[in-house]
């Protein structure tokens, strides 16, 4: 199993396309950081326009923590495509190249083989997120410094103290990893049925786009199905950045307003991952290799 995993990782990181994702992410993040470095004040004024009618807000609004939040908000919607690029190729790519039949004539168990493949895709996904964390969080912290986070939400604004933020990012990135693993698992599952990677990539993105639209449209008809769409749960990382208040409306350090939402969404995502991977194993074990 470990050898299989090693080989899969070796294959992933020997391919140029693997690095496209890392390059794309680097470019996106640097562009956002550059924009906020140059015009951060304008951006803050725009976001806080409504607040500033009533309040004078002093301090470094555009700090590393805030920048990271902006980046995640903008970027995480697009990361699934980059994950699909690799995950969709895991099985269909081998079928397309013709290497699948060679691999499966080797003395290996198909279950172990497919699990190793999924683990490799998962490791790739997690490395991508670590890279995002390094650039979006740590580099932003270096470039923009740190301060309290002042976030504007739909119904209210939240101010979180500087010392109370870092663990929230740790949590948010772990949750994001879970969300992205769900995408990888879906893509991986679809990869079973194709003999080139384009099909599963397009199928995964279609599923994500359609369900995201359903998730974001506030139409009563769609609201009833929202809880059943995994994309609805993929954005729950934001819940880490909402804080409980006491009766005097003071924030309580170290708390999360809707911890229940995070837990529920995590469970939904884990169930999805297990189902997709489990289905992949079942399908793959029965698969006749005709490519």
């Amino acid at each position: 199993m470990f050898t299989l995993l090693q080989i899969e990782l070796y294959k992933i990181f020997k391919r140029p396309r693997t690095y496209i994702a890392f390059a794309a992410i680097t470019a996106l993040i640097v562009i956002i950081q550059l924009g906020l470095k140059v015009d951060g004040k304008e951006y803050a004024d725009f976001v806080l326009a409504d607040m500033k009618n009533m309040l004078e807000i002093n301090g470094k609004i555009i700090n590393g923590y805030f920048v990271c939040y902006v980046i995640l908000q903008l970027l995480l919607i697009h990361v699934p495509l980059l994950i699909a690029l690799i995950a969709a190729d895991m099985i269909s790519g081998e079928a397309n190249m013709g290497t699948l039949r060679l691999l499966l004539t080797k003395p290996i168990s198909r279950t172990e083989f497919i699990m190793a493949k999924f683990l490799a895709a998962a490791i790739y996904t997690i490395l991508l997120l670590i890279w995002i964390a390094v650039l979006a969080l740590f580099v932003s912290m270096l470039v923009f410094g740190t301060d309290d986070m002042f976030l504007v939400k739909n119904a209210y604004a939240v101010q979180i103290e500087r010392a109370d933020i870092f663990w929230r990012y740790a949590g948010a990135f772990c949750f994001a990893a879970l969300a992205m693993l769900t995408v990888a698992a879906l893509c991986f599952f679809l990869s079973n049925f194709a003999e080139n990677s384009i099909g599963p990539i397009v199928a995964t993105m279609s599923v994500i786009i359609v369900t995201t639209i359903l998730s974001t449209m506030s139409i009563p008809l769609f609201n009833t199905i929202k809880p059943f769409l995994f994309t609805t749960h993929m954005v729950a990382w934001k819940e880490f950045f909402d804080i409980k208040v006491n009766d005097a409306n003071e924030t309580i350090k170290g708390t999360v307003e809707h911890a229940d939402k995070i837990i529920r969404s995590s469970i939904v995502l884990v169930v999805h991952i297990v189902l997709f991977v489990g289905a992949s194993v079942v399908v793959f074990k029965k698969k006749d290799v005709l490519s």
Binding site: D148, Y156, A157
Partner: peptide, 30 residues
Amino acid sequence: FIKAPVGKVKVYFKKPDKFKLKRDAGISLL
């Protein structure tokens, strides 16, 4: 509509009307 923490501040005053409020750290809302 704002969830904010309690923060330490320093206030400076000088006659006749010089006044400054500084937050130890973080963002202050006035």
